[in-house]
Structures are given as C-alpha cells and as structure tokens.
Amino acid sequence: MCAMTDESEQRREIGHDEYDPVGTLALITVYFLIIALLWVFMYFVEFLGNEPTVVGSFLTVVGIA
C-alpha cells in the first residue's frame, strides 16, 4: 500500500542521489542560532535578573531572608 507521491503538482522527480537538502541545512542553522542566542539570554534572566535561588544562599533555603 506504500505509494508514490501525489503527482498532480509534481514538476520533476528527484531521486535519492541527486537530492541535496541544503534548504534543511539552512533552516536548521537558523534554528540552532536562535536556540544558542536564547541560551545566552537565559543566563541574564536566570542569574542576573533574580535574587539568588535555592542554589545560592543558605538564608533563602531556610526562608529567613
């Protein structure tokens, strides 16, 4: 039952060997850059924008401060 592509709008047939997914590479590179930038941004949100969290100080942990 496994079948071919819907050929109504297909203009050409591209086989395994002649297909080079450069568009995928381009798109994934963009995604990677976005994620990397968000990761850097995270540092500012997490560690510079807030009071010390549980990781930080004894006083916060026991709720004195």
Partner: peptide, 25 residues
Amino acid sequence: TAFTVVASMEHGARQRGGEGYFGWL
C-alpha cells in the same frame, strides 16, 4: 526528527519546483 522531517518536506518542495536556500518554502 527535525532534520528528517524538514528534509522530507524540502524534497517535496523541490519536486514541486522549489528553489534556493529558503525559496523552497
């Protein structure tokens, strides 16, 4: 999955006449 699925979509787009790094979209 991101790679395989996007590459499969791109294959479809190129068979439908898509060109370029982003133009195939």
